[in-house]
Amino acid sequence: MSTTRLTHLRQLEAESIHIFREVVSEFEKPVMLYSIGKDSAVLLHLARKAFYPSPVPFPLLHVDTTWKFRDMIFFRDKIIKEYGLELLVHINPDGIKRRIGPFTHGSALHTDIMKTEALKQALDQYKFDAAFGGARRDEEASRAKERVFSFRTENHRWDPKNQRPELWNLYNGRVRKGESIRAFPLSNWTELDIWQYIYMEDIPIVPLYFAAERPVVERDGMLIMVDDERLPLKDGETPMMKSIRFRTLGCYPLTGAIESTASTLPEIIQEMLIARTSERQGRLIDKDQAGSMEKKKQEGYF
């Protein structure tokens, strides 16, 4: 008779590991999409657990829009080196040629070219047949219906009305040449689970999640950090130093900071429990209209 009892975090952890192992067993060429954020940090941690003592048996892919926070890139390179991982970085060469950026072309076009298109390019170029992502079902309404193994056509499209049924822990990993799946080991995790797990397992994350004095400007009710000289200042705009942190990380001109003094994980978690403002609120991209995320997903955005 055993006395070991699985708490919900251990249960979620085991289920994620199971998904990692299924994908690696059933696909020829998996890759993990690494966005450097906290969910990616947890995803990477779980991947290392799943295959131990073997090394992580797939490369990481970072789709770089060239507008990420400098701290993110620094953190990325440090982690890759420390854990001895293989990292692929892809930047859309068309976007570079056309000098696409969020200020010159607007957030929608920038995201489309530098993120969605760039991701498809990279997946095609390396011929990956499975890509791990850190999406969670609690993030957004259309994600609540996403499968753990989410099938994509040759053109990387997601068809929400024609998804494969997914029962028990039996995932269908059959694809034809050119087709692929996106696998989401964190499907059943909530934002609170992620933070609790980072705390429990002492997982390193980008320092931008912790409050510090940083230069910001206020635009459309959002605090935008002046991360480098590319941020064009409007008339009368002067960067102010504020104690801020980020709940989510993306391209710095599109990611709003929150004013905060939370500089430890317990403080962040506490603030989060009190704040009651959901996670993606800091991202400009979702604001257009309800259902915008679903449209982006159908087109291949994660």
């Binding site: 957004e140 259309s142 994600r143 609540a144 219906k145 998804q163 499907s187 909530t190 309800a290 679903e294």
Partner: peptide, 21 residues
């Protein structure tokens, strides 16, 4: 809150399995 997908929202019925936490 529950009817995530746009298509079903307009039809007024739930068409798939949605997970909530």
């Amino acid at each position: 809150l529950l009817d995530g997908l746009q298509a079903e929202r307009e039809q007024g019925i739930t068409i798939d399995v949605a997970y909530r936490y």
